[in-house]
Simulated assay, not measured.
Amino acid sequence: MAGVPFRSPSTGRNVRAVLFDTFGTVVDWRTGIATAVADYAARHQLEVDAVAFADRWRARYQPSMDAILSGAREFVTLDILHRENLDFVLRESGIDPTNHDSGELDELARAWHVLTPWPDSVPGLTAIKAEYIIGPLSNGNTSLLLDMAKNAGIPWDVIIGSDINRKYKPDPQAYLRTAQVLGLHPGEVMLAAAHNGDLEAAHATGLATAFILRPVEHGPHQTDDLAPTGSWDISATDITDLAAQLRAGSTGFR
């Protein structure tokens, strides 16, 4: 990739960093977590629908952050929330976590550290990296995102986890402090995400935005985020398409 940087129509500034929502946008959390749950269930002779369990575990993600976003709870890392949510879903499934080795459950919760990228993610990110700063803008903590990148070969330039900002999206400071750490104006930072709600919050703080289509993030019957719902700077079919559009300076689905 070479040439003039992409100029954001919404911010009026040249984009210098393209940052990515990670769970669902860069990596396929559902397959990875379901596989880890299935392996654990098989070892312990548990009758569990691993895919449904993965969905319920992920469904606890936002509710578990709500108390922190509201100020009712002090910040804790996503690793802690994932571990707490695992116990919650086990009990919901009729399984008492106190009857299971806590170390093994800790290891199961670490499945979130080793998720597999979508096929286009690494080549697309590598192409974008040639011209732009790239990194995650994720609710994941730094160690989680670092483990994920090392395991999956994700070529980030920088990792600024939520434990550095001590804010979870969609808190405006999650976006603004990340730009500040990079020494950039918010309008020079683009958030690329498969979730319109994330993009709405980023846009409201002055970031450039790109929608990435992930039509099976939640499985074959997904109904949300199948199309952009806002006037984002770019709408792309995947990350390699985003790279091409950044290169061409074009917008809209191809």
Rank of each mutant, 00 (worst) to 15 (best):
P123G: 05
Y40F: 15
R58T: 00
L226D: 03
T77Y: 04
A52N: 12
F6Y: 15
G124M: 14
W57R: 07
I234P: 02
L78N: 03
T240G: 10
R83T: 05
Y132A: 01
L86S: 00
T126P: 05
R247T: 11
A127Q: 14
M190L: 15
G94K: 07
L191G: 05
G197C: 15
E131G: 13
A34H: 04
V181L: 09
W29T: 03
D87T: 10
Q62C: 02
D120W: 02
G183N: 05
G71R: 14
P9M: 10
D66F: 13
R83S: 05
P228F: 03
G153A: 09
D66P: 00
A41Y: 03
I239A: 06
S235P: 06
V216F: 13
L145N: 04
Q222R: 15
T25H: 05
P117V: 08
A34F: 11
L90W: 08
L78A: 11
T126H: 01
A41S: 04
F53H: 09
Q180N: 14
D87M: 04
H82Y: 04
L242T: 02
G219H: 00
L145S: 06
W232M: 09
W57L: 15
W57A: 01
L207V: 13
P186M: 13
R83M: 09
P97T: 09
A41E: 03
D147N: 13
T35K: 14
L125A: 07
H44Y: 03
A236H: 10
T35L: 08
V15R: 01
A248V: 10
T209G: 02
T77S: 10
A149W: 10
E104Y: 10
T35Y: 15
T229V: 14
H195K: 08
P172Q: 09
D101L: 08
L199A: 10
H113V: 01
W57D: 02
D39C: 08
P119E: 07
V27C: 07
M1N: 14
G252D: 08
A236C: 06
T205D: 02
K150E: 07
H44L: 11
A127L: 08
A201M: 03
R7M: 15
A127F: 00
Q222A: 12
L46Q: 02
G252F: 12
L191N: 00
I154M: 07
Y175N: 10
D225W: 03
T142R: 12
V158S: 15
S143D: 14
S102F: 08
R56I: 07
I128H: 09
A149C: 15
N151A: 09
A204N: 13
I159Q: 02
P228A: 15
T142K: 11
R110L: 05
L144Y: 01
D39Y: 07
E217W: 04
K150H: 11
S121F: 06
D66M: 13
L115I: 06
G94N: 14
G197S: 11
G32H: 01
A127S: 11
R73M: 10
V89S: 03
A36H: 02
G161F: 09
T142S: 13
G161D: 01
R177V: 08
Q173S: 11
F6P: 00
I68E: 04
T209L: 11
K129G: 02
G161N: 05
L144W: 01
V181G: 01
T240M: 14
A243H: 04
V76Q: 14
E107Y: 15
